[in-house]
């Protein structure tokens, strides 16, 4: 078949990529850093490799880990009312709720603002660290990266910052509330996330995982690949 010579195979799907938004088939090609590939039918971005993206993403992930740990233990808000001043970190607040009926809500909120972002940063480092050094990926790299993508919409640091701002306006007349370092850590996190999104190209990462010869744990789950 001359399909093979063109670098793709219409019977096994080798070398092809389907747009996740509209299913249009594209032939995978090497791209230069800085290029952006868009779907011919729906114009969704298919790939946008950036120079040194893996190293940047690792650095940004470490930055967000540091910021998130700081956000847990440094004071978040400081209230001064009637001569009393009191600073409290998210950790203190969580402990105070530890034995209430509201525990599930508190846990869900903490997961969305702290737990999932930290987990995502960790999974991304786990996936990319060997790839950035040109070594073979760790065993669970594929699963780790897929989970980090599943968690993406559920980590809500930027929404939390807006929520805090709204809450402060609501209590503005009743007490003086000062923002602590943990609040500014969340603000910084918004910018780290924006930068991370600019470097993130899922297609390049999947290709890198595959090209680095990952023996996935899924191989035995479905039938052997023809010609693979």
């Amino acid at each position: 078949m001359d399909d093979r010579e063109q670098g793709y195979d219409l019977s096994t799907g080798q070398g092809l990529i389907a747009c996740p938004r509209c299913d249009a088939l594209h032939v995978e090609e090497e791209m230069d850093p800085g290029e952006t590939a868009r779907c011919i039918r729906c114009a969704s971005v298919l790939a946008k490799p950036r120079d040194g993206a893996f190293a940047q993403l690792i650095a940004l992930s470490f930055t967000s880990m540091v910021l998130l740990v700081g956000a847990v233990f440094f004071p978040f808000l400081e209230v001064s009312t009637m001569g009393f001043g009191n600073a409290s970190s998210l950790f203190d607040v969580a402990l105070a709720f530890a034995e209430g009926v509201l525990l599930p809500l508190v846990l869900a909120v903490l997961a969305m603002i702290i737990g999932l972002p930290i987990a995502r940063a960790f999974l991304l480092v786990y996936t990319l660290a060997p790839l950035a050094q040109g070594r073979a990926p760790y065993r669970h790299a594929a699963r780790a990266f897929r989970w980090s993508e599943i968690m993406r919409p559920w980590s809500m640091a930027e929404i939390f910052v807006i929520g805090t701002a709204v809450a402060l306006v609501k209590v503005a007349g009743l007490a003086t509330v000062q923002l602590g370092p943990a609040f500014w850590a969340f603000c910084a996190l918004i910018f780290v996330n924006l930068a991370s999104r600019a470097f993130m190209c899922q297609t390049s990462i999947w290709d890198a995982i595959e090209d680095a010869g990952l023996r996935t744990e899924f191989d035995d789950a479905s039938r052997p690949e023809a010609g693979g």
Binding site: G13, P20, L46, R143, I209, E210
Partner: peptide, 22 residues
Amino acid sequence: LIGCHSCGRVWPAEHQRCNRCG
């Protein structure tokens, strides 16, 4: 064929699971 909604890789239509991303 069938395209993976998670990583875009294409497989024969009878595949149940993406071999690349799971």
